[in-house]
Amino acid sequence: MRLLRNGDFVSGVALAGLGVFIVVEAWQWEYLGRDGPGPGFFPLWFGIAMIALSLLLVALSVKNRDAVSDKAVDWSKVGNALYAWAGLALCVALLTVLGFVLSFGLFVFFLVLVIYRRPLGTAVATGVALPVVFYLLFQVTLGLELPVGKLGF
């Protein structure tokens, strides 16, 4: 249980899993063809290297498990960052429906109010001002395309 809080152990296991996936996939492709190495050649080797190195990482983290407490992930600190990331993911998901200006505005409002804990007025002002500046700078001035939603902007 203590090991499950250790980042090296968990990431080592995850990367070993990824290595196995790469090897299994690469196994299905041609390794050596008539004209030389096939599409499976390169992935097979780095997949094997990934499995070996991640198992080494796992072994080292088990060997040094007494030092686990120093390296354990502090989940309380991670919360805020994950909230911000979830906000970004939602903003990206809303791009097709609301377009860039609206979804980015809502995202900025959320960040300023919830993550930075600023007053409501500041959050509203920033949530309105930033998307407008982006629209004027990128779309109007530079002619770059911004994601458009169902509302047409």
């Binding site: 970004l88 903003c91 860039f100 980015f104 960040l111 300023v112 930075y116 600023r118 994601p147």
Partner: peptide, 23 residues
């Protein structure tokens, strides 16, 4: 920071979208 970091996120989204207009 409450202006700078959202701006970086916005620039990152616009910059990425501008490469191939792909959501």
């Amino acid at each position: 920071a409450f202006v700078l970091y959202p701006t970086i996120l916005g620039i990152s989204v616009v910059g990425t979208f501008s490469v191939s207009s792909s959501l």
